[in-house]
């Protein structure tokens, strides 16, 4: 019964923490844009929170560089499990044009488990909303939480 409760609570209102792991600011601004009146994702129960300790979903943007990698791992460790991770934008998914960079620490899913991939440079707001909806669907399908 507790499991069902947990799942229901998670699926109904995802709290989001935004981890900027060496992005170009573009995905980050578009995430904030999602919260403003035009797209307004708060109607789906999404809320941007100030601490990873409150979060259910981590939105990780940017190519993960060597300096920020340690911090990303720490933020992931601080997030209460079960949590979801979304690789946000081409950089987090594959490194994009920064694969040749001397400071590139590898794509995000090499370091932490990723649940949702939202592609684009930057992803369109519609794509972002779709990604979040997919994340919620994924929770609902999970058998053991």
């Amino acid at each position: 019964m507790l499991k069902g409760l947990k799942k229901g609570a998670l699926a109904r209102s995802l709290w989001v923490y935004h981890v900027s792991a060496s992005p170009c600011n573009n995905c980050d601004i578009e995430i904030l844009d999602l919260l403003t009146p035009r797209f307004d994702v708060e109607r789906f129960g999404l809320l941007l929170v100030g601490s990873p300790r409150h979060a259910d979903l981590l939105l990780v943007t940017g190519m993960v560089n060597k300096k920020v990698l340690d911090r990303v791992l720490r933020v992931y460790a601080q997030t209460p499990k079960p949590c979801l991770v979304a690789a946000f934008g081409s950089c987090a998914i594959s490194g994009d044009l920064f694969v040749d960079s001397y400071n590139f620490a590898g794509p995000l899913d090499k370091h932490i488990p990723v649940d949702v991939y939202i592609g684009g440079c930057p992803p369109k707001p519609e794509a972002m909303i779709l990604g979040v909806v997919r994340a919620i669907e994924k929770i609902k399908k999970l058998k053991d939480l």
């Binding site: 170009c24 600011n25 573009n26 995905c27 994009d96 044009l97 960079s101």
Partner: peptide, 26 residues
């Protein structure tokens, strides 16, 4: 946030460089 743009630019042709520097800042 250091991504090494200046070094990446040295490995791109002149037509490709505008795309690289575009991604310095969104």
């Amino acid at each position: 946030m250091h991504r090494g743009h200046e070094k990446i630019c040295e490995g791109k042709t002149y037509d490709q460089i505008p795309f690289v520097v575009e991604r310095i800042c969104g």
